[in-house]
Every structure is written in C-alpha cells, then in structure tokens.
Design a protein around this nucleic acid. Sequence first.
DNA 1: AGGATAGCCTGCGGGC
DNA 2: TGCCCGCAGGCTATCC
Length: 287
Amino acid sequence: MPELPEVERVRLTLTPHLVGRTMARARLHRPDICECFSAGAKGIKKVRCTRAALLEGETVQELRRHGKQLAIIARSGRVLCVHLGMSGQLRWKAKGARVKPTHVHAEWFPVPKEGVLEGHLVFRDPRRFGGLWTFESLEALHRARWDSLGPDALTLTAAQLRENLGASKRPIKAALLDQRVIAGVGNIYADEALFLSGVAPVRPANALSRGELTKLARNIPVVLRRSIATGGSTLRDYVDGDGKMGKAQERNAVYGRSGKACLVCGTPLRTAQVGQRTTVWCPECQH
DNA sequence: AGGATAGCCTGCGGGC
DNA sequence: TGCCCGCAGGCTATCC
C-alpha cells in the first residue's frame, strides 16, 4: 500500500528515467481515472482531458512529492499529479521487461534516444483508488489539491503536529491518518510510529502530553526514512519505478504482526479497529 | 463543524 | 475443486 515511503521510492527511481525526457505520446486507456483542470474566469474548473494536458509534447523538469501524491512537472509549467491509492503502480517499463498488462490505465512514450525507444512509463491501478489529475501550473495543483494537505510527514516538526491536531479528541491513530493533519502517513506507518513512541493508538489526541507529541513528531520521520532506506513496504502490489519490491515490511514491529510477540517485551500484540482501520499495538509498551 | 460512516474497487485467502 | 464471503485500505461524499 503506497504511503509516503513507497511514493518517495517511486519518485527517486523514476527521476533518472524521466527528467529531461520529452514525451512523444501520452495514452489514456481509461479516461475515468483522469481529471483535467483549467483556469477559467471563475477559477479552476474541470475540462475534457487532452493529450497536451497529459504532457504529450512536454519535457519533464522535475518529480515532486507531497505526502502520498506525486507531481510530474513539465518545463512549460504544466503538471500531472499522480496518486497511487491502494494498488497503483507508476513504473518505467524497460524494453523487454514484463509488466502485467491488466489494469494499465495510462502510458507515456518518450522521444527515443538516438532512435532507440528503450522504455516507457506505465500507470497501473487494479483497484482504481488512485488516479491522475492535470493542471496548467504547479500553483493550480496547490490550490486544487495540495493546499488542503497537512505538512509533509517526512519533515514533520513537533510544532506542526501540535498545531494541526489542535484540541481534537479523536483517537491519535485516526488523526495521524487524516491527510489534512499530516500528509503521507497511512495505516502501516501510523502503527509503527505509535509503537516506537510508546503511545496507545486509542488515546484521544488531546490527551497526549507535550513530551509525547514531541516524541511522536520525531518518530514519524524516523519510521518513514527507515522504510525509504529499505525500499518501502511491499504487501501485495507495491513496486518502485523500476518494478522492484521493497523489504521494509520485514522490519515492521507491529503492522501485520497481530498476535505475535512484541519485539521488545514479548507480550502478544493486540488488534482492534481504530478509526475504521485495523490497528496493531503492544498493550505493555504503549499507553 | 468535527467526527463517524458508507462506498468505491479488485484480488486473494480461508472455510466449507 | 470450486465457490462465496470477508478483508485489505486511501480518500471522498454524506450524514449526524
């Protein structure tokens, strides 16, 4: 499940394939997964998708990420925003490499290098929880989507966490999953960060002490960086831009280890629904 | 208005 | 073996 570390891996692995490349052709096989926006007199509105909006003829300048969303920014300023949702893959398919042909919703073919097309970009998303959004500028992307997200979880500070939680009485786990509070944390890393911080997921957010919030704010980037370093978590579909699976799931202390012994104290890990999400924690280590 | 809930969607694994 | 059900979960819309 692509959370921040997985999207960051995709960004890192696709950057060398895409930056500086001009897209000769863009193909959208399933138009319903893409929304195109254009600035009109009355602000940004949805328009019919065009190939130009999908970056056909554009040269890629940069790949940028905020939370779990990725933006492919063209030199012209046009932007293609990609969200992987649950099962999405954004991959560089090298010539001869195999990518499962089902649920391929969009493809981009760059201008061949010295007459040789050595690969192309593929967007697959079986469950279609992800999607594409196009904008005429980075500013439009921000206004339409990114401005409503909280600060990026990778550079989270204690002050940001405190401020965005406010006086919320929600379980802290539920608040961490809310992208308006912090952008990038999903079910896996919420559980991992709470375990590392010794905080029980059901605690009301406003019941956490200043010290606990500071620890949590520090541990969220720690957990995410650790996962990025080991390639992200591959539970089912996730692969990076080169099609490689991650190994971070092998290191998870609580996620996916329900009933197993806590790695610290040996107590069986407990499971419950918190914020409508399966949550695993150690009843001894987390209070 | 914050917070809970339903629904989207496919693949897979458990149980019978 | 095969079928059905439940579950996985990021995010939005809707309701209370």
